[in-house]
Design a protein around this nucleic acid. Structure first.
Lengths: 278, 278
DNA sequence: CGTTCTATTGACTCGATTCAAACTAAGTGG
DNA sequence: CCACTTAGTTTGAATCGAGTCAATAGAACG
């Protein structure tokens, strides 16, 4: 079991783009030519040790990094030393794609556990996008998916209790891992500490510990031996108030077999004044 | 004074793009042809009453909306009825630009006070972008700026105390308004309620009230008569732990008079293992 | 095999929520 | 223009979820 897990996590060095493509193919069609164009990108593979920085706040990278194996996190440290983890990244995610259009990095990127990344020059990506609107769309969309996850993080931290926050983080990670072929059995390596989880959920380390104990006691999920094992997925989702909508993992309605009925696509509900306030 | 303020807020109907252009020109150069291309876009101007929805979660819009006057907010309502305001939008901001590449809206957009928006068809925007990489860059960057503000919101809600959160929201709004020529005198119309502010800061309405009283008592800022008046900007920024970095309002280093020294643009600090954890 | 992280526990404190009531400003219609 | 209504603000008291501090237990690592 553990062996299977670690095999799952291993990057097939011949196909560094496989995680990304697997996820993308879940939501859109690709012509062989599109994939060929992507696969000609020169990728520089690099390993990071646990805790190592991939990039720091203020950096002006000239390359984008695709996470191939392991986990990265985005983080910011504020005056007073507190750290907020903004996001966990999973294989197939771009780490600093936004530097194509927003040069200065406004947050740091660090490895949670050992990590493999592939570096692609900005120039190569720009060339890829210049070949047609398709890859522009895909990469832009990648940035938007990230923004959607951030919105979810705001809701999570702003409105939910500690237990739901932590549960929600785990649910989101699970779904995203499954979208790239990992965590098939609802368990996955989790090299981060309770303190990392706490900083992602906006709670104290001590409280994160107590919440994890609760989740374990209720038989929902267990985090031991650097491994998360989900025992009751429906219950966990319920406790987390989790819905996968914000991940946009299914084909957007407008993409499914031709154009949808557009008459209901935009509804200006004039009659509902004030409703927004309550 | 009040007259000047309301004049400031009024949209010059002949130049609906003026706020957007004013902000953009603060960070990049435009050729007259670029601006001309933008100004030929067919824009449909529409007014919304306070509390009215511009769009709702689940909508699949076929147009993007540029906020011309007033304030919009992004919001999500969760199981249990709690609302999280994800962002306040100010004139010159796009409300649903992301629907160009992520069709389904994962949050609602509502008017805080009376609002004027300009609707631009997706098709027209795609045509604009097809004319060259320039507007693609600009619009993509708009999405990234929004993502940067969301990261800041996560840090704000996740790590700061209630007073700093509210102060931070006000600081961010002020800077963004000033970037489009509003709030020149550090005061601006604020048609939202304490309950709106609370939902944006992730605190209860009662506590928002108490925090606002503190900010008033300390002589930093005052929110009365649907107007925010900042009396001590440095003190407010200090209390908020506010820096304008995340707004990317200055020219990015790489854009200022030719290429910057790229040797220091990416620094893989191998020696700093573990540092990321503390 | 000790050193260093990481996880766990208990006691105490505190920031923030909840509930409920009172007060104030802002429309609305007679 | 005033009485009525409604939305928004303010206050106090009780409570609670979560933070802090400090000490211990356990795992991992060189």
């Amino acid at each position: 079991m553990t062996a299977a897990l670690s095999r799952e996590g291993t990057m097939q060095s011949g196909r560094p783009l496989s995680r990304l493509l697997q996820r993308l193919e879940g939501v859109m069609e690709f012509r062989p030519a599109d994939i060929a164009a992507l696969e000609t990108l020169p990728i520089n593979i690099r390993n990071l040790a646990a805790g190592e920085w991939l990039a720091r706040e203020g950096d002006v990278p000239s390359r984008c990094h695709l996470l191939l194996a392991g986990y990265l996190c985005r983080m910011r440290i504020i005056e007073g030393g507190q750290r907020q983890i903004l996001a966990f990244l999973v294989p197939g995610d771009f780490a600093d794609l936004q530097t194509l259009h927003l040069e200065r990095l406004d947050h740091g990127l660090a490895a949670l556990g050992p990590v493999t990344v592939g570096a692609i020059d900005h120039g190569a990506l720009r060339q890829l996008m210049a070949q047609g609107p398709h890859w522009t769309h895909v990469l832009w969309r990648e940035n938007l998916l990230e923004a959607a996850r951030m919105r979810e993080a705001i809701v999570n931290i702003g409105q939910r209790h500690a237990l739901a926050r932590v549960a929600h983080l785990i649910c989101g990670l699970t779904m995203r891992l499954r979208a790239v072929g990992l965590a098939r059995d609802f368990s996955f390596p989790a090299p981060w500490t309770q303190s990392d989880l706490a900083d992602a959920a906006g709670i104290s380390t001590v409280h994160a510990n107590r919440v994890l104990q609760d989740l374990r006691r209720w038989g929902m999920v267990d985090h031991h031996n650097r491994t998360v094992r989900i025992h009751d997925w429906p219950a966990l989702c319920k406790a987390a108030d989790f819905t996968p909508d914000h991940l946009h993992l299914t084909r957007d309605p407008i993409d499914v077999d031709g154009p949808t009925d557009l008459s209901r696509s935009f509804t200006p509900p004039r009659e509902e004044r004030r409703a927004a306030r309550d």
